[in-house]
Each structure stands twice: as structure tokens, then as C-alpha cells.
């Protein structure tokens, strides 16, 4: 009897996977060609790496105070932008969400505006803010607010659309107003979800705020930028460590918050 192997894979899936493999390889080839990589430059960089590593390994605490102060500034910038963002988004999300918008067309136009805002990178917003307000934390807050608000609106709105239906019907059916639907029906229902989203966004905003310091938004980023420019690797490594621990603690905190919120569901 001839041994015939029985195929087990799904035909269409197999074809898709093959297509994916081929196009990935193709893209890799094109990318390598376009990036115009210079092997000598890479080799030279590699040679310098151990030296930089050694310098980074020597921690210097001389600028610790300044670093700490600027780190706090970075966090404050993120915090302010998120708080202001939440206030704006809480209201706007109800205007955008399909099941609560007072007017469909208006809701869609508003949503389109925020989609456009979202597609523009945070760095550009901060640069624009710096250009109009000058360097410093205020520019950071303003610049970070745009992407924060539009992120929160999108997430809040989809949470409203997902969980709202039955609650909205209930409050409408008793003759409640739009404000009743929001305040008595949706806010209590979605509060914990909103808080978890906000905590998550705060985490992202702190990370962004640290980086954005490098383009003039104030905070620890501007210090780090300076250290790199002047090869002060010992100071730089302390800064990096501090950022690392901040992010680590923050993530632990938000995970806790989300766990608690989850348990209340």
C-alpha cells in the first residue's frame, strides 16, 4: 500500500502564510537597499561600544539633585496634560460616541478632527507648542494635550459605544434627559473603565514627556540631551536609571489600579 500523507493544514491559511513570507522578504530587501547601510560606519560604531559601556558603568551622583528636580517636572507635565485631557475628553467623548452624540453628523465631524490630531506625532505638537510659547514645561503640557485628548476620546467613546446600549435605553425610557443618560446611567457604569484608561494613558504620557524634554518641552529629557551632546556618560547613566525606576514603579502602580478596577466589575 502506498503511503500517502494526509494534509492537515487549511488551504487558504497556508496560501496566506506563504504570501506573507514572500512579501516580508521582499520588503526586507528593499529596506536594506534604501537605507544605504555603510558597513564601515557600523564596524566603527561597534568598536566604540565597549568604551561607551565602560563610561556608562561609572555612575556619578554630582547632578543627582538637578536630575531629580527635572524628573519631577517631567512627571508633572505628564500629569497636568492627562488631567486637563480627561476633563476635555470626558465631555467630548459623549459628543463623539455614536449612541450618545446629540447629532450624528456633528459627532462624525468632531471625530474626524480628532483622528487628524491623532495622526500627527506628539513630537510635532510639542515642537509647535515650543514655537508658539517658547521652551519649557508649559509647551510640554500643551503639546502633550493634543494626542492625550484624542487618545482618551477614542478610547472613552468606544467604551461608551460598547457598554452603553442597555443603560441608555433604560434612562431614555423613563423620560430622562441627555444629561440624565450621561450622569445617572453612563458615568456610574463606565467610571472604573475610564479610570483604568486614564491610568494607562498617564503611563504613556510620562514616557513621552521624558523623551519630549529633548525637543524643548522641559523636564529630564533636556538634561539627558545635554549629557549626550557633551559625552557626560556618567551623569547620563544616573538619569537613565532614574527614568527606568520611575517607569517601573509607575507600571506597577497602574497594573495595581487596573487590577482593582477589574475586580469591581
Amino acid at each position: 500500500m502506498a503511503v500517502r500523507k494526509i494534509p492537515i493544514a487549511h488551504k487558504a491559511t497556508q496560501r496566506q502564510q506563504r504570501m506573507l513570507g514572500i512579501s516580508s522578504l521582499l520588503l526586507l530587501g528593499i529596506s536594506l537597499y534604501c537605507a544605504d547601510l555603510d558597513m564601515k560606519q557600523i564596524a566603527a560604531g561597534m568598536e566604540r561600544l565597549p568604551a561607551i559601556g565602560r563610561q556608562l558603568a561609572q555612575l556619578s551622583f554630582t547632578n543627582g539633585g538637578e536630575l531629580l528636580r527635572e524628573l519631577v517636572t517631567s512627571i508633572v507635565v505628564a500629569f497636568l496634560s492627562v488631567i486637563l485631557g480627561v476633563v476635555a475628553a470626558l465631555f467630548l467623548a459623549f459628543l463623539v460616541a455614536a449612541n450618545t452624540t446629540p447629532n450624528r453628523l456633528f459627532g462624525r465631524v468632531l471625530n474626524a478632527v480628532f483622528v487628524i490630531i491623532r495622526t500627527i506625532p506628539t513630537t510635532i505638537w510639542v515642537l509647535l507648542a515650543v514655537a508658539s510659547m517658547g521652551f519649557g514645561p508649559m509647551a510640554g503640557v500643551l503639546g502633550l494635550m493634543f494626542p492625550t485628548v484624542s487618545y482618551l476620546i477614542r478610547t472613552f467613546a468606544s467604551q461608551i459605544e460598547e457598554a452603553g446600549g442597555e443603560t441608555i435605553e433604560a434612562i431614555r425610557s423613563v423620560g430622562g434627559t441627555w444629561w440624565h443618560v450621561i450622569a445617572k446611567g453612563l458615568l456610574p457604569t463606565l467610571l472604573t473603565a475610564f479610570m483604568a484608561t486614564t491610568a494607562f494613558r498617564f503611563e504613556i504620557s510620562v514616557a513621552e514627556s521624558v523623551i519630549l524634554g529633548m525637543v524643548g518641552a522641559g523636564g529630564i529629557g533636556s538634561l539627558l540631551q545635554g549629557y549626550i551632546s557633551y559625552y557626560q556618560f556618567a551623569d547620563l547613566s544616573l538619569g537613565i536609571l532614574m527614568v527606568f525606576f520611575t517607569m517601573f514603579l509607575l507600571e506597577m502602580g497602574t497594573v495595581q489600579i487596573r487590577k482593582r478596577m477589574g475586580r469591581q466589575n
Binding site: 443603560t167 433604560a170 445617572k184 457604569t189
Partner: peptide
């Protein structure tokens, strides 16, 4: 489905 506000 009752449609209550379950957090209240």
C-alpha cells in the same frame, strides 16, 4: 435584560 445601572 433588566437594563439596570449595575454600579448604582
Amino acid at each position: 435584560h433588566y437594563n439596570l445601572v449595575y454600579r448604582s
